[in-house]
Design a protein around this nucleic acid. Structure first.
Lengths: 270, 270
DNA sequence: TAGTGGTCTAGACCACGCC
DNA sequence: GCGTGGTCTAGACCACTAT
């Protein structure tokens, strides 16, 4: 009746639902507000919960929603920019970088990292775990792989703690950094990283692989894992934090004040 | 019996399934090989199809599998690197860039783009659509937004074709490019881009937003949409295409020859 | 037309956060 | 304990591709 659209290509229900919800988020909700629970939303829209969840998953993927088990679904704030560009010069662990050094020990790197290092798979290297904090929340974890040959002066240390990590970084800084090469790809968080990032295993992440070049060879390789739902990676000279919308539909610029009250009967069915 | 692991934290079935399948892909399958269909796989592993599909979705997200409706599920080749770094200097549409200029017309940019341009939302700008091809396949679509003030010399053209797009780019090249700022974030493809990228709507993509700076102001903004399943974005001086594994589990370096025979009874249940 | 993956349903139970 | 999102099931039908 009211639809001018000829349904020659029927849209999936969850896709239409996602659009409806997205528009509602723009116009009727504020950042931090809590949505009705999934069972109620599904009933209100006349779909099965699994179908509703498909729509919610999409919106979470786009950074519009945040879901936490035992708590509820809230409207996510706009993604914040995280600088990973050439602006972040220097070796990892420079005085001003945003990372927090963690534990260190010896491991055999993944095959892909070994290839980047130009080492045989199975050859042990130093590994240093780090965490990146922003706005008080952990947004990324990282493992830095350093071949023994890059830090020949490293004193023998059996303890696998943060002191060892700092020692590895300190030795690394003695080398002259010629350049970095970075790649970005989509991945899903491993179980151990998931806990640190406060996400469930399998949540989407942006994986940044950095190759540190010194004296013509690869001196170290780091693999960083950024939360894809909350982060926007920025490259180049500092971007003045403009309002960049979620890819699919622009995010409103709501004040980041928080609500705990459940949304009333605003969402109408279809 | 053989498990030294105490199942105090029971792993979800789909997660375990994903691990099993991933290992099997590494050891028993080659790139291009076609897997048994979902109903058979589910039966073989003793799970519901929905559960199996959760595992397959994860593997597809990590670029290990490729699924096509009406065809089947195949083992994906390793992701290939796509250069989006500062190495790709110059304005869009430079003679050597990898993009293919498409249609152009006038549109009102999304709110976020308008903000980046420093324009009021609703103000119309030139838009140029482009496509990026690699290995004979489209890997990215792009919309370039150019305010009228950046191309004052553009002759009046009513036709909204590729000729208009080339004219806009040509005028843009008259300006001196001072720098670019790029951001990368996760998104999902809109319906129109989906067709061009040969993906279903909602498939995950890496959204690269570039701000072109000239004479201290934003002369243009482009929003590029890369297939997240097949692409690895590379920044910096050309990376010599090393073997970089999928984030969760390393990909084997199989020759990219293709099979059409269905996999035999290699996958064992649990 | 046969076979594939994609969508959808109506349930059930579980793990977690909070009170 | 209670309410939340997370997992899982066993079906059904649809859209698409290849033959």
């Amino acid at each position: 009746m009211g639809t001018t659209q000829l349904d020659a290509v029927p849209e999936p229900k969850y896709w239409h639902l996602k659009t409806v919800l997205s528009d509602a988020l723009d116009s009727e909700f504020e950042v931090g507000e809590i949505l009705p629970n999934e069972r109620e939303l599904a009933a209100r829209f006349g779909v099965a919960r699994a179908t509703l969840r498909q729509a919610l998953e999409q919106l979470e993927l786009e950074g519009r929603l945040q879901r936490r088990r035992g708590v509820g679904t809230t409207v996510a704030p706009p993604r914040f920019g995280v600088d990973v560009g050439p602006g972040e010069q220097g070796w990892p662990g420079s005085p001003d970088d945003a990372w927090q050094t963690g534990e260190s020990d010896e491991t055999t790197p993944p095959a892909g990292v070994a290839a980047l290092l130009g080492r045989d798979a199975g050859e042990p290297v130093h590994s240093v775990r780090r965490t990146r904090m922003t706005h008080g929340q952990p947004v990324a974890t990282e493992v830095l792989y350093v071949p023994h040959s890059s830090v020949p002066g490293l004193p023998a240390m059996d303890s696998g703690g943060t002191a060892r990590g700092r020692a590895v970084l300190r030795e690394l800084h003695r080398l002259e950094l010629e350049g970095k090469e970075r790649t970005v790809e989509l991945g899903s968080v491993r179980a151990d990283d998931a806990r640190q990032l406060d996400r469930l295993p399998g949540a989407p992440v942006l994986v940044v692989t950095t190759r540190y070049v010194s004296q013509g060879t690869t001196a170290a390789v780091s693999v960083s894992t950024y939360r894809a739902d909350t982060c926007r990676l920025t490259f180049g000279d500092k971007v003045p934090e403009p309002v960049v919308p979620a890819p699919e539909s622009p995010a409103p610029e709501g004040a980041p004040r928080r609500h705990r009250a459940a949304a009333a009967g605003r969402l109408s069915h279809c």
